[in-house]
Design a protein around this nucleic acid. Sequence first.
DNA 1: ACTTTTCTTTGGTCTGACCTTTACAAGGGA
DNA 2: TCCCTTGTAAAGGTCAGACCAAAGAAAAGT
Lengths: 253, 253
Amino acid sequence: MVPPKRGPAAVKWQPIPRTRAYELVIKRIEEQITSGVLSVGDQLPAERDLAAALGVSRAAVREAMRAMEAQGVVRSGAGVGPDSGTFLTSMPSKALTQFLRLHMALANFPIDDVLETRIMLERRSARLAARQASASDLATMSRLLDEMDAETGDLAVFNELDTDFHVAMAEAAHNTLITEMTTAIRHSMRSMVLASFREHGDWPELAATLRGQHRAIYSAIAVGDQPGAADTVEAHLRSANDVLHWGAGGHED
Amino acid sequence: MVPPKRGPAAVKWQPIPRTRAYELVIKRIEEQITSGVLSVGDQLPAERDLAAALGVSRAAVREAMRAMEAQGVVRSGAGVGPDSGTFLTSMPSKALTQFLRLHMALANFPIDDVLETRIMLERRSARLAARQASASDLATMSRLLDEMDAETGDLAVFNELDTDFHVAMAEAAHNTLITEMTTAIRHSMRSMVLASFREHGDWPELAATLRGQHRAIYSAIAVGDQPGAADTVEAHLRSANDVLHWGAGGHED
DNA sequence: ACTTTTCTTTGGTCTGACCTTTACAAGGGA
DNA sequence: TCCCTTGTAAAGGTCAGACCAAAGAAAAGT
């Protein structure tokens, strides 16, 4: 312990929280949202006006917009008309996708942890879908399966349909958060999956395997077999993860 | 269909994707991360230098930093020294917390969906913790329970310990993504929970109930009862959700 | 040797200008 | 009259340059 040379005893000076201007802008907007003044679809004042109203520079307002845009709650467009100006919006999966991409690239989220999370999400989706999927939910999933049967050449299109099927299953569970997370995980791994598709030796056989597994998932959901749907989807995800060995050299454990 | 008055037949002019400067900055940084040149802990060039190197203005670089900061992958500090400059970091839960707060405020995520997601996350955590919790994991949880017993007056401190207990359980499951999500959900609901605590009539009784439920969860985990741990934690979350009737008027369904 | 001052670097903020996009209004020719 | 061109205004997008604030380092003074 070093006793202070000056000052009355050990006064604890808690440092002033130096808040940046753009954070204050976000805070003000968040207050308007929480108090119900602003909601999704509403237009924010023009950047110049908002800057003047809050007593900060336009740059501070713009930095706040970029941060909120990164969170998927704001959308901006230039010009005049219905798509111009800054609006409160709701695009969570876009934000989550970028979030996951960055953190996976930085190795903050190990690939195995992401897989286990996916399994947790999709097991729950499959179970809920088997319990409560509506006729239109099932029709959507069935249509996507047919489209996957028809798509034989383009790997990217096939993968889009694959993703759409899993998202449709999540939507059948009717939980917004789980749906958005599922969508984001799939999208954030898009390029990885495509690369693995291309590296795979026997594409027709892989496609046939995937189609069969998807059909099995669909069947379990359609007949309302909750545990069966969950187990089938987990088997599908683990199988796909094994077949599509990530990275350049495959597993090394 | 409106045929064009001029031009050779129906030429499809695909519009030029006008990408904003700050998005290009992010793209460049992401490339450096993906290619392994940059990783967590590394320092980015000074804003002025980076702007010059990429051929954009400093404002564009700063907007990119704000967006990446909102994703929890960048940290900035002024001055000279170890904490000054801009660094790649890993603070996902901070970003996820803000993300959830904003989207919940905008009613993009219904409260029931968040609850069900929490149950899914914590059931999985409890199950995994019961299977593989280490001695130090259990010690941490046990210590938090004791601290909660000692805390009788300050609701905020009690709630912090409550949150820490749930996070400790998630950490015992050793899945980074699930841990971060659990942390973020708890933190994003902090003010709501505190308000409910204060509105509750009989605090000592509520605290006793919560303590008992936490002890039950801990016991199931300590003895390795995986289904029991999952069910106990779900019961705890549903019970707490019922007792702490959100909003001003309570449930109305 | 110790303290004080000055310097330098880096993010934080502000100002003001100009560009780009988009709709709409004004004008001019067939 | 009708259509097309042209201008105008409003909004975000971009840029340049200046200055402020923080924090360590080096220089100066005691």
